[in-house]
Simulated scan of single mutants.
Amino acid sequence: MNEYPYPMLEPPVMIYPKTTDKSADLKVHEWIENAGSSSLDWEKYDVTILGVPLSKSSISTSAASDNPEAMRQVWKSFSTYNLEEDIDLAQLKVMDLGNVRQHATDISLTHQKTKEAMEAMRIHHPHTLPVVLGGDHSITAMLVKGLKQSHPDESIGILQLDTHFDLRDTNEFGPANGTPIRNLLESGTIQGKNVHNIGLHGFFNARELKDYADEQGVHYTTMKQARKKGMTQVVEEALNQLSRSVDTIYLTVDMDVLDITHNPAAPAATPGGMYTHELFEMVQQAGEHPKVKAMDIVCLDPRKDIQSIGVKSAVHVMLSFLTGVCKRKGR
């Protein structure tokens, strides 16, 4: 496909110069290509990046709308080479498609465009793996609905790394950042038994949400349980169970899953959460699984960040996931 197939998107704003020296160590901003920069052979790409800068749908005050561009800005701080795995991500061809167009006041219209964007990604180049930079967690419901719309006969499961259930009542809150999983359950897009949430902890979820999760058959593992059992084993068991039940696994990473000391930039940052090295290992593990076919990174407010701790952690999450994708492909 030689034409830009996304009328609902704004092409990327940040266009970095690319090095012509193939022997040089690449930085991430030199590696990721830009959809608006030249005529493209879409068939050659492995990964497509999409920004959804929406935070008007957040229950709490949030500038998560700034996050996609904030992540792109710190790409310069990262190399494509992962020392710990001895893997160079530059073997993957990655395309930044830009951002979903935002309406100034109409959240439902932006949600619709987000759904259409994911549907278009799966129709125009279904061989690529979508990586979405949010935005608040409300976008996950729209992205998964777009995925389902493009493949109506395929069943979808969710691996959710999160401090919260995100099962608040849609009648009260609407399609907000506290309701995406319930939105998907109530719309029939997914089944409760095909949701695995890892990272719940502390005093940040109401009992009624736990009761609703139990009624729907949602699987969940608290931080205390995961650490006792072992993070790797918990993720492995979740992926194995999902892979037996669904055709596609969608990974959603709410950055508030991190402990507040590891990520002060999450609007709902809390103590007692996950550590960065635990999160990086878990998303890499998910990236290795052949049924994980899309992922998002949501709920990060750069305006609350300190020395880019949160934003750099989010980029590390993205790159850790792509490290897993490289290992999946045997590269």
Results as ranks from 00 to 15, higher is better:
T110A: 11
D41W: 09
T252K: 09
H201Y: 10
Y16M: 00
W75D: 02
N177H: 15
K76S: 08
H151S: 10
D166W: 00
G178I: 06
V246P: 04
Y6S: 07
L239M: 11
V317K: 05
E69W: 04
H289L: 00
Q191K: 13
Q233D: 07
S23C: 05
V74H: 03
A24D: 02
S313C: 03
L83A: 13
S108K: 12
N177Q: 03
T261I: 04
R72S: 11
E236F: 01
Q91Y: 08
S60P: 01
T222S: 15
L109K: 14
T110K: 04
I260G: 00
E84A: 14
L239P: 14
H103M: 02
E3F: 14
R328C: 01
L200N: 15
V100E: 07
T19L: 01
R328M: 07
I190Y: 14
P53I: 13
H196Q: 06
D296Y: 00
K22G: 00
G174Y: 05
V315D: 11
G135P: 02
E281N: 13
E154M: 10
E33V: 09
K304A: 12
P152S: 02
G330R: 06
H111E: 14
T221I: 01
M255P: 01
H124D: 02
S23R: 15
K312L: 11
T252I: 12
I107R: 02
Q102C: 08
D162T: 09
S187W: 05
T252L: 13
S37G: 13
D211S: 05
P130G: 07
G330Q: 08
T222G: 09
N177K: 07
L129H: 15
K93Y: 14
A64Q: 09
I107W: 05
A286I: 11
G199P: 03
T221K: 13
R207S: 01
T170E: 04
D21H: 14
I181Y: 12
D106L: 01
L209S: 01
A35G: 12
T48V: 08
L209W: 04
D153C: 01
H277S: 08
A141D: 12
L159M: 09
G36A: 03
K293M: 04
E278L: 06
R72W: 06
V74N: 13
K224Q: 10
V311R: 15
G199Q: 00
H277F: 12
G188Y: 14
I249Q: 06
